[in-house]
């Protein structure tokens, strides 16, 4: 009797969720539809269709991203908005001293990383560059809370826009470097990114449902660490799990890998800040 009731309740919840836009396939965030599945970009030869990592998660994890109040990442976005207006450094300036509104950054994250003055530049590089030049402020730690909160706030301004990272022109050599890394087997387990995320997405690795490793939702709030996780931190975790010496966060290798992996998401919506397990 008791069990029946519980099962009935769970079934009712599941049914209710299905009826209200969440069929496990369609992601609405605050009523805005995200592209979580689309034809792979021409340059991604190993995939026909690209899928957001959201599609590989359980209904409970998926639900956390559908409503900005349920999404714990938004706490950090709120904190970043305070930081945006906080004076720091020798010049007596805040972000807001030069940038009238954070909304001015709409579209930026969809195109990052990109080559600026010959240098492959990530959001972390942009922020620390401006902190040094315009504010006279100390650099933020790559995966630290200030840095990733601010990147999440800026990324949120592009949410729903299609990823559109350039791979030609100045970016071409970095693209080639990143692509080579993606298909290189690392570590004692001799595994490349592609072994899991191209050849085996949708399969289980122990109890974990393998995604395509798309980074259109980063920084993401990971339930495991209960905080915002940077792109490079995730790369480092993956390579470490192959039992390899990893590259450092903020290394040129990871910048190139980020450009390549981001370009594999071209066409998916920016989901920043996403929620993952």
């Amino acid at each position: 009797m008791k069990m029946t009731k519980i099962i009935a309740t769970v079934a009712a919840c599941a049914f209710g969720a299905a009826a209200s836009a969440q069929d496990g396939n369609t992601l609405f965030v605050e009523g805005e539809k995200m592209v979580t599945e689309t034809a792979a970009p021409d340059h991604v030869e190993g995939l026909r269709t690209i899928y957001s990592g959201w599609r590989f998660r359980t209904p409970e994890t998926q639900a956390l991203q559908m409503d900005d109040f349920e999404n714990p990442a938004m706490i950090f976005v709120d904190q970043a908005l305070d930081l945006f207006n906080t004076v720091d450094g020798s010049e007596g300036r805040s972000c807001a001293s030069c940038h009238e509104s954070v909304e001015d950054f709409a579209g930026l994250t969809a195109t990052m990383p990109k080559v600026i003055d010959g240098k492959l530049t990530t959001m972390e590089d942009l922020l620390n560059g401006h902190r040094a030049k315009a504010m006279g402020a100390e650099p933020w730690k790559w995966s630290g809370p200030e840095m990733q909160s601010m990147i999440a706030l800026i990324g949120l301004q592009s949410r729903g826009m299609p990823m559109n990272v350039a791979i030609d022109g100045d970016a071409a050599p970095f693209y080639e470097q990143g692509k080579e890394m993606y298909y290189t087997r690392y570590g004692q387990l001799e595994m490349s990114c592609a072994n899991c995320h191209e050849d085996n997405y949708g399969n289980m690795i122990r109890a974990d449902h393998l995604s395509q490793g798309q980074i259109n939702g980063f920084p993401t709030y990971r339930l495991k660490q209960a905080k915002l996780i940077s792109r490079h931190n995730r790369f480092r975790g993956c390579i470490r799990d192959t039992r390899a010496e990893t590259f450092a966060e903020g290394s040129d290798e990871f910048r190139a890998l980020e450009l390549y992996v981001a370009s594999r998401s071209n066409g998916l919506s920016v989901e920043t800040p996403a929620v993952r397990q």
Binding site: F69, M74, Q79
Partner: peptide
Amino acid sequence: DNVKPRVRV
């Protein structure tokens, strides 16, 4: 550090 409440009513 950084304790920040959010409420939706």
